[in-house]
Amino acid sequence: MDDRVILRVGAKILIPFILLFALYVQFHGDYGPGGGFQAGVIFAAGFVLYGLIYGLGNVKRVLPPQAVYICSALGVLLFAGVGYVTMALGGVFLDYGVLAHDPEHGQHYGILLVELGVLITVFGVMVAVFYAFAGRGRVET
């Protein structure tokens, strides 16, 4: 493994920026290109890169598979939960206008939460699929 110094150091430098960029894409999605889907994939790509360079065991210590599975379900629940909260507040399902006094602010909160749900699910699914494929071991034929 010592012959991959450039990869290891390069990855170490790059990964924080990849994760930060994912958050930028997430929260700047209202004003420019971006949103939950892209941010989730980029956030997952940071961990996938770590797994490719440092091995599956190390990335699983940073981010246990159980946490990833919980993430992928949590995002869907958050998305649907926002819908039920709007129903409880007197609106229709996923009508964010009732989340605040000013309907426009309500839309802002709603979109923020829903995009966060998408981010969490996409991130969880992508990393979990990577774990499943990488952890499968070579087939003996």
Binding site: G35, F37, G40, V41, V122, V125, V129
Partner: peptide, 10 residues
Amino acid sequence: ILTAIVVGVA
């Protein structure tokens, strides 16, 4: 298409 791409990879 944005959503279809992510669903496609899944």
